[in-house]
Amino acid sequence: MSYTMRDVAKEAGVSVATVSRIINGKGEASPETIAKVKKVIERLNYKPNMLAKSLSERKSNLIALLIPTLNNPFFPELVREIETEANKNGYQIYLCNSDDQRSKVEYYLDSMVNHYVSGAIINSLHVDEKDLSLLEERGIRTITIDRANFEHSYSAITVDHKAGAQDAVTYLIQDNQCKNIVFISGPKGEKSAIDRLLGYKLSLKQLESPIQTKIVYGDFGMESGYQLIRKLLKDGETFDGIFSSNDAMAIGAIRACYEFGIQIPEQVKIVGYDNINMTSYLHPRLSTVDQCKTEVGALAIKELMNLFNNGNEKPNHYELKPKLIIRESS
Rank of each mutant, 00 (worst) to 15 (best):
L62A: 00
Q101V: 13
K88H: 08
I93H: 05
L125P: 02
E81W: 10
Y107A: 03
P76M: 08
T144A: 08
L55D: 09
L62G: 01
L62H: 08
T144W: 14
A86R: 01
D99H: 09
R147E: 05
I93T: 12
T69P: 03
A64P: 03
E57Y: 06
I122H: 01
S98A: 08
T144S: 14
A120N: 13
V117G: 05
K59G: 06
N123S: 13
K130D: 15
E129Q: 15
L135V: 06
K104Q: 05
R141D: 09
Q101M: 15
Y108F: 13
R147V: 03
H115T: 07
I145R: 08
P76F: 07
Y91H: 10
F74S: 00
L65A: 00
N123F: 07
Y94I: 07
K59M: 10
S118H: 01
A148N: 10
E137N: 08
N71P: 01
I82D: 05
Q101R: 14
S54I: 06
N71I: 15
T144Y: 07
I143W: 02
K88G: 07
G139H: 12
E81R: 04
S103D: 12
L65S: 04
F74Q: 00
N97W: 04
D146V: 10
R58F: 03
K88R: 11
R58W: 03
L66W: 07
D100M: 09
E57V: 04
N123C: 15
E85R: 14
L70P: 01
R58M: 11
I121Y: 10
N72D: 13
R141G: 01
S54T: 07
H115W: 09
V117Y: 07
I67F: 00
L78D: 06
M112D: 08
S60Q: 04
S60T: 02
E85Y: 10
K104S: 05
Q92L: 10
N97H: 02
L135G: 05
G90C: 11
N72V: 15
A86P: 07
Q92H: 12
S111N: 11
E83D: 14
R80M: 09
N61Y: 13
N72G: 11
V127L: 12
I82R: 04
C96Q: 12
Y116Q: 04
L78K: 02
Y94M: 15
N114L: 14
T142H: 12
I122A: 04
E137A: 09
L70A: 04
E83N: 13
F75Y: 14
I93P: 01
E81F: 00
L135N: 02
Y107V: 12
P73T: 03
D146Q: 12
I143Y: 03
Y91Q: 06
L62N: 00
P68W: 01
K104A: 02
G139E: 08
A120R: 10
N87R: 15
